[in-house]
Amino acid sequence: MQTTLSPETRADLAPSLPQKQAIKLTINGTVHHLELAPWTTLLDALREYLHLTGTKKGCDHGQCGACTVLVDGKRINSCLTLAVMKEDSDITTIEGLAAENGLHPLQTAFVEHDAYQCGYCTPGQICSAVGLMNEGQAKTIDDIRELMSGNLCRCGAYPHIVDAIREVMHIEPKS
């Protein structure tokens, strides 16, 4: 049987590259000027162009939460937005969370509670937890569990992640 099953191609797509443009990104309080084509995602801009590799790529499709960053204080999946779309925003990554001397309280709590194993989902978990606290919707342990469900942890550190966040939020263990 002769078949032609090929990667999706379309005749109307002439093989040419998109125009690069000047893009200004404010990340962790620092303004970065980049020349990027519009097809660069915020995640790839951070990792491949700015070498801010603390933000992780775990699926590139909004299905794992490893790429979570804060945009104007709100947590988002940086893999599903284009860098060019975030020109006017304040972006905070894991590299920008710690205070001058020392760690963010959530970072300290994650270490203390062993709220990770391999560490790959960890920056996304922590940024997500910061976003969770900013949102102010979580009142109970079950709220934390539900509202942190956008961050997969394949090592299965969930109970410790919840312990760490709960402690920083002053929520009782059995609430």
Partner: peptide, 21 residues
């Protein structure tokens, strides 16, 4: 003992295979 590599992991400084240039 808390993990000795813990701070590297919570600060994003721990580097994985695709994070070297």
């Amino acid at each position: 003992i808390s993990r000795v590599d813990g701070v590297a992991k919570v600060t994003g400084k721990a580097k994985y295979a695709a994070e070297y240039f």
